[in-house]
Design a protein around this nucleic acid. Structure first.
Lengths: 216, 216, 216, 216
DNA sequence: TATGAATGAGAATTCATTCAT
DNA sequence: AATGAATGAATTCTCATTCAT
């Protein structure tokens, strides 16, 4: 009954569909998301999705593959350009990650990935290699640089990298899973402040160095 | 046409079924888990589940409601009994949580809950109130006690509580989601060591106090 | 959990069960009635029904077989004993049928039988032979007697018998099917009055004979 | 794995499905009718039904809502157009109803409705208001007109309306319920003749007026 | 390219029936 | 005689996928 939009630019359609898919997956999870829903939210017919993606699985994979890497590349660019003490860089990277996850659309991805990715072995490997190992590797390298500079104590840098991101990811999850069903709004600011403060003190070679204010 | 073998196990059956459900949900997620699978793994017929739980949703709810609170109560008992410096208590609580999540059966729960609980508003509220707020509250109280004793710096105790658990939960998730699809085995020990070390230094009023070894 | 009533008199149990079955079938129809419901309403356990009836079908059959014939026999007794003009006898038989169907428990039977009996070929034959043909036959014989006495016009007595019972059965159906969902209560009295009045005038050899009042 | 053959029949499909549903409901009753059966008889797949009706209940409702009203409207048109004595009109209306119910497809509806409609409260109200009250109202109005013209005796017209239809409905029920399980074929003609004859004599102000032959 | 009617495998749920106690 | 836990066949409904238009 609906007349198709005259002609959709073939090259923007996939992105529109993935955009819609993100919303629907976020709302219902992978299994409960219906292709109909995704199509409807993208203003397309169900069959149209199959012109661009061979299956529902493929939609999920494409979504995960495309949604995060660009953000990671921005972080890498910042780190590459950086010079000088590592503490402030770490603050900045944490701020970037936090900022990314503040965006309403993206914040659901950690939950979605944690909840659903285990059924996609290929995607899991891709994600681990191209997002997690790469992102954690970046932070680990920065930490190692800080150790080399005498700024940080000597610690297992790969382990430290996990400590850096854990509270931020958990806040994102909290916001999508529990905050919507809670009475009081959740304010991430104090947690973020405590995280940076505690982390940098905990990492510092001489903790006294790091009594600066939390930015943001 | 029917083969009945009533083994008169009315009182043990629910636990057996939830046990089986934990495995199946862990393996497939909520949506992909089939009642047939759960029944089969419990050595029962499909219909038997419905003698004890009115729906698949109810099985999930019962599982989440019963699986965690006992562990939390053990932690509370330890904290109640504790006297003296808080640092070692915090180490002990972290060790308990880690130990609980080391058990193969339970480790999947964080992933399962994060991935699926959003479709169960009542359960979400229950879980937030009876597990998260309660568990985080316990840690926050301990931290506050440490601040009062002059052992810890003054910080937002509710925020700190999140920092305490975040790396441990994320390790549990890592183990169920990414480790199975990875080549190298994942060793949580160094992360745990770095976590305790960094955390206690970061929290300490005088970081130098806390140069002890990680117990593990 | 319920301790069985010490010992149920074996001979009253079937009747109690059929009594319960009547209520449950009436409320839900045959297919939607659960053996559990019937047992519960009879204060027995589900398995108990199977001590007396081999199947749900058998319960229905027993119910239909036993519920009506006694009423019919009472009518036959009245007719056998009767002497004199047939008009008043017809009034009395109509009143008896009406009275039987006024009883709340029995009124549902016409609907139940009409709705469900077609799935029970044996029962259908039994019911047709032992209730319908027998009841209609009784009325037809009475009509024929009236014709012979010169009281009624000559008409097909078998056909007339159907005319006699049709409005009464339809009122019973109306009461169970439509009256419960209606705002105004349904009053069968005027229909019954009109029926007797119209019928006896319609049958009478000389209609003028039958201008008496309707008894009610 | 799937064989799709969209024959673009969106506008005729619902009617085809209801047609099939009438047959299947007639044969098995509502509860025992399987969606598979209905689909198969309509030459469609099970899922197709759900494109047009949200549930089995909805199919039944749609069937009842659409199957009868048109017939009623034809009767109203006849009555509206009618002028002159009411007796012949009544004969004609009775003949129309009889004729409608002679059609093999429709004759099952009274049984079906009586047996199953009680589980559909909305439909029951709809049916009572739009079929029964409307149809009985039509006949009652005609009767009242006959009383006004001095053609009929004074009687409760609403009650009379029920007397008019009762034998016809019961014959329809007889034909679907008992005749198929009976040895001798059931011939409605003599009952119909007796009905019209008896009724019109019974209603007539001066019964002698109505010694005409029964048509049909 | 785009559509959406049609398909049918698949899964949750129900409940008559059985039988060990 | 009575019980009620256990069974599993049966049925509704869902939705990813196909393909004629």
């Amino acid at each position: 009954m609906t007349k198709a939009q005259p002609r959709r630019r073939k090259d923007t359609r996939p992105a529109e569909l993935l955009d819609a898919a993100l919303d629907v997956f976020a709302e219902k999870g992978f299994a409960a998301a219906r292709m109909d829903d995704i199509a409807a939210r993208a203003g397309a017919a169900k069959g149209t999705i199959y012109l661009y993606f061979p299956s529902k699985e493929a939609v999920f994979e494409a979504l995960v593959r495309t949604a995060i890497v660009p953000n990671l590349e921005r972080a890498e660019a910042v780190a590459d350009r950086h010079d000088g003490p590592i503490g402030p860089l770490l603050r900045q990277l944490i701020a970037m990650l936090t900022e990314t996850l503040r965006e309403q659309r993206i914040v659901v991805l950690p939950r979605l990935i944690i909840g659903e990715i285990h059924r996609f072995p290929d995607l899991t490997r891709f994600y681990k290699a191209n997002v997690l190992d790469r992102g954690l590797g970046l932070i680990a390298r920065m930490h190692r640089r800080g150790v080399d500079r005498g700024e940080f104590r000597h610690q297992d840098s790969d382990a430290v990298a996990r400590l850096v991101v854990a509270p931020i990811l958990l806040m994102a999850i909290w916001r999508t899973v529990f905050a919507p069903h809670s009475d009081e709004p959740f304010d991430p600011a104090p947690v973020l402040a405590a995280h940076i403060e505690t982390l940098l003190r905990g990492l510092a070679a001489d903790p006294r160095d790091d009594a600066q204010e939390v930015p943001k």
